[in-house]
Structures are given as C-alpha cells and as structure tokens.
C-alpha cells in the first residue's frame, strides 16, 4: 500500500512538471485543447444534424444520444489524459530511453505515464462533461443520489476498459512489436461504435462489441440503465468490468517487461 501511495505521489509530481512544461507554450496548449474539443464537436454535430430531420434513432431521442455520447467521451478522456504518453512507448524503447526508466526507483509504467499529459483529451473532457450536463437535464431521468453514483462509477469503469485494452497493446512494444496502427484502430472502434445505441448494428456486430471487445460496457449499457431502457440486475454490475479487465492488462505489461531487451545504446 505504501508503495502505491508513493507511486501516486511521484506521479502527481511528474505530471505537475509536465503541466508546467506545457504552460511554457500557452498558445500551443490552448490550440491543442481546442482542437480536441472541435474534433469531438463535429462528431456530435453530425448526430445533431441527422436528428434534426429524424427525431428518433432506434428509439433514442437526441438528449438520450447526447447522454450516451457524453458518457463515452468523458470515459475516453479520463482514460487517455493519464495514458496519452504511453502512446509514445515505441519511440521511447527505440531510443533507448526506456533503460533510464528502469534505473530509477519508480514503477516504469508510472514514469512513462508521467512523461506528458494528453492535451487534446482535455478538449474531449470539456465536450463530454458539457454534453452530460445538458443531456442529463433534457432527458427524462429521475435523478437520485444512487443513480448519480452509478453514473460516476460507470464512467470510471468505462475509462478502465479502454485503458486496459490500450495498455495491453502498448506493452507489446516492449518486445519491439509496433501496435500503433492497431491502437489507432481500437480508438476508432471505441469512439465510432461506442457512441451509438448498439441495437442499430444488430446481430454479429452487436454481439462482438458486447462480448469480444466490450465496447458496449463503456457507455451503452450504463446509459441504458440510467435512461431506464435496460432493466436487468446484472447490468448494474457493468462498471465492475473495467476493474476486472485492468488487472490482466497490467499482468500482460509486467510479463512483457520481464522480456524487455534494451536496444543497446
């Protein structure tokens, strides 16, 4: 436990340093955040334009889709703000920089995460939270304290699901298997298919996105519960899946780490 607390404290210190670094280039930081927000904004603008003509998408109204979209986006931002710099792992390994991480007395994954912050992801967070705030008022939801708590847990759980798959793919770079393109594709699947009611995909795709790559658990199932569209008790356990998945992902990381061979600088 003391180990974890120490790692957390050092992580915060590293991120504070990287935030100070980012603030040296204020304009670039602002543009980074803004471009993230605009990117997601145009994604939602598509839904808004479509639903201007068609009021219902598979039984979901605009406010309900906005809620789903916001939930997915917030979970995504929470996953990627701390994990963004792990994206660079292939370069860090290739340049031999990773050896430095191994010499320092702190978990190398935490060091890698502390390298820099995801800036565009703050833009995602902005849009996600804004959508959630507006949609939660406009959708027909009977808010109670437990429902809000469920929502918060589901968002964290969703973030963990995405982070788990991301980490597992990243760790392969420790053995010089470049998974960058695969990670981009994964991100694409999570964002494209995770932001819509799964029902519209039907059949095999829906099954795959629920049980093989559990995109449905990030936002679709939790928001169905919140919006009163799904009434099975096991759905309440959806936020747990993230916790369950992160553990094997971390084990994969550890396993790849023991096989790490330096490029030799």
């Amino acid at each position: 436990m003391a180990e974890v607390v120490r790692a957390l404290r050092l992580y915060v210190l590293l991120q504070r340093a990287s935030a100070r670094g980012a603030m040296q280039y204020r304009l670039n930081t602002a543009i980074g955040v803004l471009s993230g927000a605009i990117w997601q904004g145009t994604g939602f603008a598509f839904i808004w334009v479509v639903m201007h003509t068609f009021p219902s998408l598979a039984g979901w109204g605009l406010a309900e889709i906005a809620f789903l979209y916001g939930m997915r986006l917030t979970a995504h931002a929470l996953a990627m703000i701390p994990m963004m710099s792990v994206h660079d792992i292939h370069w860090v390994v290739r340049n031999g920089e990773f050896d430095r991480f191994l010499l320092r007395p702190l978990n190398p994954l935490v060091q890698l995460m502390g390298n820099r912050m995801g800036l565009a992801q703050f833009g995602d967070l902005l849009v996600g939270v804004a959508l959630l705030a507006v949609a939660s008022q406009n959708a027909q939801v009977d808010w109670s304290l437990s429902l809000v708590a469920f929502c918060a847990l589901a968002i964290v759980g969703g973030a963990l699901i995405e982070a788990a798959f991301f980490l597992a793919l990243c760790s392969l770079s420790l053995r010089m298997i470049d998974t960058f393109a695969l990670r981009v594709f994964l991100d694409d699947v999570f964002s494209k298919f995770g932001s819509y009611p799964m029902k519209i995909f039907g059949g095999v795709t829906e099954w795959l996105l629920t049980y093989v790559l559990p995109v449905a658990f990030v936002a679709y199932i939790p928001s169905s519960v919140v919006l009163g569209k799904l009434d099975t008790p096991w759905a309440l356990a959806a936020p747990l899946l993230g916790v369950i998945l992160v553990w094997p992902a971390y084990l994969i990381w550890r396993r790849q780490l023991t096989h790490y061979q330096s490029v030799g600088h």
Binding site: V184, F185, K199, I200, G202
Partner: peptide
C-alpha cells in the same frame, strides 16, 4: 490503416442511416 477506418466508417453510417430511416 486509413482504408480500414474508411470501411468501418461506411459500415457505421450505413447502420445509423438505416436505423433512422
């Protein structure tokens, strides 16, 4: 990779539009 995302995009659009129609 862009081609793969293109296929995914077209599939997604097809499903969405079929559902709203």
């Amino acid at each position: 990779m862009t081609c793969v995302t293109l296929v995914a995009q077209v599939f997604l659009l097809r499903m969405i539009w079929t559902a709203v129609y």
